[in-house]
């Protein structure tokens, strides 16, 4: 059947007929039809240029040589180069030289604080002051010394973390039969004494011997801490877990092994240097 003129509307019909019902031919506006064909044409061009159809053993790679993986590798490298350009010192100098340059903090601290917040604030707090289980980084009381190289190394390998060369710092569980309960309670009183808290003096004097026999190997004479094994000083007011009687008992009973993640692989060498400096700056500013 042919398209015919419909008298009532003055338009043509499509020429189709269903049981006597005919349909007016009112096509979509020309602009729409043109853009439809244009998008189809663009799609065909894209098939040719970019990776598209899967095949049996491979896929059409496209003539433009595009690869999203190459592209992102380039973008990351570009950004890395830009950062080096903006903060050239961090690629050129080692951590000791960086630590001696007094001008860096004013210039770079705001930028580095973003890096710190993204990676470290969850544990050490936005203000670096730490919280229970996670040490304060501003107080100049160090587990592994405040030497810039040591801090950098801690950031690289972490403490008690999964990598093979991580730093190990285990406080043994003395409740597992290593100490009699009486001795354990006494040494707690001794720790309370040397850290300047209220304590039972008679017990503390017994505890001093227990400490001498069991603890000085790691915590050093008088409990001042050692830098080679991550054992903290017990005579200052900086605590990772807490200096109250009940917390000390828990520490002695069950032991402790706090985990600080290692950042090698996750962060670049330059980023690790930046963060090590950031920690050092906070230590210098903080109330010692």
């Amino acid at each position: 059947m042919k398209s015919e003129l419909d008298e009532a509307s003055g338009q043509h019909t499509t020429g189709h007929e269903w049981d006597g019902v005919k349909e007016l031919n009112t096509p979509v506006p020309l602009a729409f039809r043109v853009s439809l064909w244009l998008t189809i044409a663009v799609a065909v061009i894209m098939w040719v240029l970019y990776p598209s159809w899967p095949g049996v053993a491979d896929y059409l790679k496209g003539t433009a040589g595009y690869s999203s993986r190459d592209r992102v590798a380039e973008a990351v490298a570009d950004r890395q180069a830009l950062r080096l350009q903006q903060m050239p010192e961090f690629a050129a100098l080692d951590i000791y030289d960086l630590a001696e340059d007094p001008t860096l903090e004013a210039r770079y601290a705001p930028a580095i604080s973003v890096l710190y917040r993204d990676n470290c604030a969850a544990c050490h707090g936005r203000d670096l002051k730490g919280q229970t289980n996670f040490p304060n980084l501003t107080d100049d009381h160090w587990l592994w010394s405040g030497d810039p190289g040591e801090i950098e190394y801690t950031l690289q390998v972490g403490i008690n973390h999964t990598s093979d060369d991580t730093r190990w710092a285990q406080m043994p569980a003395f409740g597992d039969g290593m100490l009699e309960t009486e001795d354990l309670l006494s040494v707690v009183e001794y720790v309370l004494q040397i850290s300047g808290s209220e304590h039972d003096a008679a017990r503390a004097s017994v505890g001093a011997d227990v400490f001498e026999n069991n603890c000085v190997g790691c915590h050093n004479d008088g409990g001042i801490g050692g830098y080679e094994n991550g054992a903290p000083s017990l005579v200052d007011d900086a605590w990772i877990y807490g200096g109250s009687r009940s917390t000390l008992r828990e520490t002695l009973q069950y032991g402790r092994a706090g985990v600080m993640p290692g950042w090698q692989g996750r962060l670049t060498d330059e980023e690790i240097k930046k963060l090590a400096l950031y920690v050092l700056w906070a230590g210098q500013d903080g109330p010692n």
């Binding site: 969850a122 289980n133 973390h161 985990v259 993640p261 996750r266």
Partner: peptide
């Protein structure tokens, strides 16, 4: 994996606002 410690995960899952304001 490995970005945080177990202690952190446990405490964070128990109450996220203790760690992230």
């Amino acid at each position: 994996g490995g970005k945080y410690s177990d202690t952190w995960h446990v405490a964070h899952l128990q109450n996220p606002r203790d760690f992230v304001e």
